[in-house]
């Protein structure tokens, strides 16, 4: 099986290049994921750099651009991919080495969404209880693993990564705006009501298309807009 993988080592290269790799057919097993293949290719050339950790689509480390679409290598079945499998780092993010990108800006925007529960009411003796129906509102929002596939697929985030929060951070913003235990809803909505942080989203929906967890950041963003609208009416 043929691969074409983006290679760049800032210490020795001035320009990136695509390097061909071949995985012998006897090493390809049914049900194999792309990450399994990458680990075998790394045995051929141990200078190949990529992130991975849990290998089961939970940690979100191995996000990359696979045949032009962002995804997680560990949950992408090898047999579904056209050859040569072209692997590149996330578009729009600075490359550290090979498939490894610098996600500092992504984390900065995540932090800017204030992804923590704000509740200054006196703590109850046991846990803060939530109505099951209210808890259900968080389904589809809390499952995000912050792999970055969505934000790295978003043209608005490519153009203005420093000002637009990006779909991943906005999904988290929506998660805390929807949380009935959170008391900072007004503050959260006020902060997002400018020309950049939320409203750079033009509903392109690449985020929803690529999310490896099947989440819908575009809908979460639209829900924030609707909440904002209801508040102002």
């Amino acid at each position: 099986m043929e691969f074409s993988i983006y290679r760049f080592n800032p210490e020795t290269d001035t320009l990136p290049k695509m390097q061909p790799f071949t995985l012998p057919d006897d090493q390809v097993e049914p049900g194999m994921m792309l990450l399994d293949a990458l680990l075998l290719l790394k045995e051929q050339d141990d200078s190949l750099g990529f992130r991975r950790s849990c290998q089961h689509g939970v940690c979100g480390s191995d996000g990359m651009n696979i045949n032009g679409t962002n995804g997680l290598a560990c949950v992408t079945p090898l047999e579904e991919l056209d050859t040569p499998v072209t692997l590149r780092p996330f578009p729009g993010m600075p490359v550290v080495r090979d498939l490894i990108v610098d996600m500092t800006n992504f984390w900065d925007q995540y932090r800017a969404a204030e992804p923590w529960l704000v509740n200054d009411s006196p703590e109850p003796e046991v846990e803060r209880k939530q109505d099951p129906a209210d808890r259900d509102e968080l389904d589809g929002l809390y499952e995000c693993i912050l792999c970055g596939c969505c934000s790295a697929a978003c043209p608005s985030y490519w153009w203005n990564p420093d000002k637009f929060l990006g779909p991943a951070a906005l999904l988290q913003a929506a998660r805390f705006i929807k949380d009935t235990r959170d008391e900072a809803t007004e503050h959260r909505l006020d902060r997002l009501d400018d020309a950049w942080k939320l409203y750079r989203c033009h509903t392109i929906m690449n985020c929803t298309q690529v999310c490896p967890k099947g989440l819908n950041p575009a809908k979460a963003i639209s829900d924030i807009r609707r909440t904002m609208l209801k508040r102002s009416l």
Partner: peptide, 10 residues
Amino acid sequence: RLLSGQRAWL
């Protein structure tokens, strides 16, 4: 905020 954010969008 005259013509930005939510107001512009609306």
